[in-house]
């Protein structure tokens, strides 16, 4: 599973940099020249980039939690191997992105502490449950598909260390996505029960995938720092439209029904009816669709999703459990594991 680096609301920032230096910096970006760590950059650029890379890193390591829970229950040795490799990849992505963030001035320990205390966030989509194997398939197909679509644009960004990390991550994301596609194809060519399980998982994950890109940007977002400085490359709505154009026809061909659903507090579907808005506009080539429930999106982002508390608890548990190891190897202190 992968995290998009789209912090939900662009923070309000004040640019206090030397106007001449700022103009030269912006001209470089406009000319497509990438920024490397030794280059001069406005403090607000550093702050925004750090916030984005840290959010992305948090998402990678939290995103590994729901899938990690399925390694022991994967249905074959091949799927078990692939899922293990994927979880390892995601944690590795977190490692690489924390490194990018460290270079921007924040210590790793501070980032991990801020994550477990809720000071910083991770991607909203990881606050939902994965009750069946088909959910894991949907996460790899839809969520990784959405993530890679977003991250491909981020690899065209302006900050060199993030761009090279993104290029490396995207290579691995391609495996995650392809493996997920294979899992969905397998399930949808299986038994009636497997198809029903897949449809239920699709109902849960389709709206989460649409919300993955975040709410619509402000109309003037191109003039605001995140896009002006090429930290963010494409509008959320544009990414969402491309996602639907790609995945809606694929889902329909697979025999899945694109439903509009309502969910309970645990994230389970309580009602589903076919999305009547789903249709191809032949003149534009775009598919129309029903927007996800944005009230639910905001509710979950504010900490009231089905799995927010559980994910953070597990992360906090790991942080606490690992403290003696960090002390032992970090400063050579004699340390002992916590009591079982």
């Amino acid at each position: 599973m992968s995290g998009a680096a789209n912090p939900v609301s662009p923070p309000d920032i004040t640019i206090t940099a030397d106007p001449e230096k700022l103009a030269a910096f912006e001209q470089r970006i406009a000319d497509g020249i990438l920024i490397e760590p030794g280059d001069w950059m406005p403090d607000s650029y550093r702050t925004l980039m750090l916030r984005m890379a840290e959010h992305h890193a948090n998402s990678e390591i939290i995103g590994a939690l729901p899938e990690g829970e399925w390694i022991t229950r994967a249905p074959s040795m091949l799927r078990k191997l692939a899922l293990t490799a994927k979880v390892q990849d995601e944690v590795g992505h977190g490692q690489m992105l924390y490194r990018v963030s460290q270079e921007l001035g924040k210590s790793r320990d501070d980032m991990l502490r801020d994550l477990v205390t809720g000071v910083t966030k991770y991607h909203n989509c990881f606050n939902y449950p994965c009750p069946t194997w088909a959910d894991i398939a949907m996460v790899q197909w839809l969520i990784d598909g959405a993530a890679i679509m977003n991250q491909k644009t981020l690899a065209d960004g302006a900050y060199g260390p993030y761009v090279r990390t993104m290029n490396r991550i995207n290579m691995e994301e391609a495996f995650h996505f392809k493996s997920g596609e294979d899992m969905v194809l397998t399930l949808m060519s299986g038994t009636k029960g497997q198809k029903a399980m897949t449809q239920e998982a699709f109902d849960r994950w389709w709206p989460i995938s649409l919300a993955f890109f975040g709410p619509a940007d402000k109309p003037n977002c191109e003039e605001l720092p995140p896009m002006k400085w090429r930290l963010k490359i494409e509008r959320n709505d544009s990414l969402r439209r491309r996602f639907v154009n790609r995945f809606a026809p694929a889902a329909i061909d697979l025999g899945l029904i694109i439903n509009v659903v309502t969910k309970n507090e645990q994230g389970f579907v309580t009602s589903a009816k076919p999305d009547e808005a789903i249709a191809l506009d032949k003149s534009t080539g775009d598919w129309s669709f029903t927007q996800p429930d944005w009230d639910e999106f905001w509710r979950v982002i504010r900490g009231n999703g089905p799995c927010n508390a559980h994910r953070l608890a597990l992360r906090r548990f790991s942080y606490d459990q690992g403290a003696w190891v960090r002390r032992a190897i970090g400063d050579g202190a004699v340390a002992t594991p916590p009591a079982a």
């Binding site: 320990d109 502490r113 608890a313 906090r316 606490d320 960090r326 002390r327």
Partner: peptide, 25 residues
Amino acid sequence: MSKVRERTRSPEGDLPAPTPDAKQW
């Protein structure tokens, strides 16, 4: 979900003392 993970409770109290970052390679 495994039982162990289901039963995970958020540890209470203060966070462990901060530790310095290890060397980067």
